[in-house]
Each structure stands twice: as C-alpha cells, then as structure tokens.
Amino acid sequence: MPEAFDVQACLQRVRDGDPIAAEALIAHLHPWVWRWVHNHLPRRESEEDLVQDCFVKLFQKLDAYQERSGIPFEHWVSRLVVRTCLDALRAEKARPEWRWADFQPGETEWLDYLTNREAEAPPRSSAADAHRIVHELLARLSPPDRLVITLLDLEERSTQEIAELTGWTRAMVKMRAMRARHKLRALARQSMKSEFQDA
C-alpha cells in the first residue's frame, strides 16, 4: 500500500525552492484540479491551458497559504481553482447559437423540465442527457450564476460547501441559485420560442 502524500512537508520543501517537491505537488494535485476545471470549463478554453493557469496562480500565491487545523490544503486549492475558472468565464464573450433539432430525446426532456415552472423533480433520464442541454443554457448565464447552478444542481454540493468554496454566505448561495434557475428557465423558454418562430 503506497504511503500517504505528506502535503505539508511537500509545501515546506516547495517554499525552500525544491523543484522535485514542486513536481510532486503538481502530480498529487493534477487529477483533482483537472476534474474541477473540466466541470467548470468555459466553452472556448483549453482544459490544459486552464489547469496550467491554476498551477501558476497556486505557486504565485503559495506564500499566502497558512495551514489551519482540520482544513486540508486541497480546500484552499479548490477556492483558487474556482476563482480561476470564474475569471475565465468572465473573459468569455461568445455565446454560440443552438437549435432544438440538435438535441436528443433525453436532452429535450431536460429542456422541457427547465421551462416548466411546476416541475417538481428532474427527468429520470441520465445525467449525460442533461449535460449538453444544461451546459448550453449555462453558457448564457453570468459566471457566478453558472457556477452556483453547476455546484448545487449538477455536482449536488451542499449550500455550506458552496459557501466555503466561493466565500459567499449560505443565504447568498440560496438566493443566487433561485435567481439563476429563474434565468435558466427564461433562457430555455426564449430559445424554444425563437426556434418555433423560425420554423
């Protein structure tokens, strides 16, 4: 069984200028950072470019990190990655168009769900079916709205987790999620209306 990675010891060696320790830290964090970036990636960004940006910021800000009892280093990294992704989302200007006919049946079920105010539960179709339609709509939201919907509804994180990751209060998380869902429904309805008018 491999030995547990000693993050704090590695961090000290990185701060002392040890390049091997820096490589070990990147290797330890890379799969985890990549997963975060992949889940929050702007449409026109390269995953590896954004992952690299995250690591550049991590090493630039490493001196500001202070160990806190019971809070793992990875939590600090997650906040840095979220902020880096938010910055990239803010920089993204283009919003590609899409058409109703481009979607599969499972995807249209999700679009129907998003446009129905009375819908109490999401469709039983797979998360993969929801992925594309939801992300097409999410790309049209502001970066903070997109982030809260992704964390809360797609990743099923608690409001407390989201508050810790973003620095928002739990009340702000709930309010932003409610408003973001309302905007998503409005966007979905507008997209459907435009599609039928163009037909």
Rank of each mutant, 00 (worst) to 15 (best):
M1G: 14
F5M: 04
F5N: 05
F5A: 04
F5R: 05
V7Y: 04
C10N: 07
C10H: 05
V14N: 05
P19I: 02
I20H: 10
I20T: 13
A21V: 04
E23M: 11
A24C: 06
A27Q: 14
H28T: 05
L29K: 05
H30D: 09
H30T: 10
R35D: 07
W36S: 11
W36P: 03
H38V: 10
H40D: 07
L41K: 01
R43I: 12
R44C: 10
R44F: 14
S46G: 15
E47G: 03
L50Y: 02
Q52S: 13
D53V: 06
F55S: 04
K57S: 09
L58D: 03
K61S: 12
Y65E: 01
E67D: 12
E67K: 09
R68D: 08
P72M: 05
E74I: 06
H75M: 13
W76E: 01
V77N: 01
R79P: 02
V81Y: 02
R83K: 11
T84I: 04
C85A: 08
C85N: 01
D87S: 08
A88I: 02
E92R: 00
R95M: 12
P96C: 10
P96M: 10
P96E: 11
W100H: 10
D102F: 08
Q104K: 11
G106N: 02
E107C: 04
E109G: 06
Y113P: 05
L114H: 06
R117N: 12
R117F: 14
R117W: 15
R117C: 07
A121F: 12
P123M: 03
R124S: 14
R124H: 14
R124E: 13
A130T: 05
R132T: 00
V134Q: 06
V134N: 04
H135F: 12
L137M: 15
L138I: 09
S142F: 07
P144C: 09
P144Y: 06
D145N: 11
R146S: 08
R146D: 07
T150Q: 06
D153G: 07
D153P: 02
D153H: 11
L154F: 07
R157P: 01
S158I: 10
S158L: 11
T166F: 06
W168E: 02
R170K: 14
A177Y: 06
R179T: 11
A180R: 05
H182A: 14
L184K: 01
L184G: 00
L184E: 00
R185W: 03
R185I: 04
A188V: 00
M192E: 08
